[in-house]
Simulated scan of single mutants.
Amino acid sequence: MIWTIKVVLWSGFCDEISWEAKIAIDSSSTLDELHFAIQEYVQFGNDHLYEFYTSRNERSHKRTRYSEENELVYETTLEMLYPLKKGNSLFYLFDYGDLWIFKIAKTRKKPFDPVVGVGYPILIEESGNKPIQYSGFEE
């Protein structure tokens, strides 16, 4: 099934930037596949470590981590995660130095069968300004 998820830039190197996107993605996609989709749509270089985690808020130390280190990003699918434990949210942390944090939520839009000939994930909607990964640095 194809789900619609919302990805919101929660915090990062430039906190004044506001960006969010809705993505249609197969519910059997792994968190690693979601990582690559977010990287593509936010237009970051895939040059830093990352992890996903579930917790009550983005700063909570009580969290369940899904990372390359424990290899859960390769094994965990969206349909395995949802529904999340009551009160928890899913977060995506990219770059442990700049701490880009995105909040990810499954929308209430009804899941649908894949459309023949369409490659998922796809960007459905986007608003705000994309953050610049290395703002303030000249190339």
Rank of each mutant, 00 (worst) to 15 (best):
K109Q: 13
K110H: 13
I17V: 13
E33G: 06
V73Q: 01
N129R: 13
E139C: 11
V115L: 15
G136Q: 09
L81Q: 10
S28G: 10
L49H: 05
E139K: 05
Y74S: 00
L99Y: 11
M80T: 13
E126D: 08
F36E: 15
E71F: 02
E68M: 11
V116N: 12
Y50V: 01
Y120I: 07
S60N: 09
H61S: 09
E79S: 07
A105E: 15
K103G: 07
Y53D: 03
N57I: 02
V116P: 14
T76G: 00
G119P: 09
K85H: 06
L81G: 10
K86T: 11
I23C: 03
P121T: 00
T107K: 09
N70G: 01
I17S: 05
E20L: 10
V116K: 14
Y134L: 13
G12W: 04
S27Y: 02
Y66H: 04
Q133W: 03
L84P: 05
F44H: 02
A105S: 15
F102M: 00
D98I: 01
F112N: 10
S127Y: 07
N46D: 15
G87Q: 13
A24N: 08
I23M: 01
S127I: 04
Y53W: 04
L9A: 00
W3S: 02
I25F: 01
E20W: 09
Y134N: 12
P83H: 02
S29L: 01
K22M: 08
K110E: 12
Y82Q: 14
Y74W: 03
E71H: 11
K22P: 00
T4L: 04
T64C: 04
N129T: 05
T54H: 00
G119R: 10
E139N: 12
A37R: 01
S11W: 07
L9V: 03
F36R: 12
D98L: 05
P114R: 12
A37W: 04
E68H: 06
F52L: 00
M80N: 10
L123I: 04
E125W: 12
T54V: 05
L49R: 08
N129S: 13
S29E: 01
F102C: 05
D98M: 11
W100T: 06
Y82P: 06
I132T: 15
S29T: 04
V118I: 13
T30N: 10
Y41V: 02
S29W: 07
S67R: 05
N129D: 15
A105Q: 12
L93E: 13
I25L: 03
I122M: 13
S27F: 05
I25Y: 00
F44W: 00
V73F: 02
N57D: 14
K110T: 14
D32C: 11
V8S: 14
K62S: 08
L90A: 09
H48R: 02
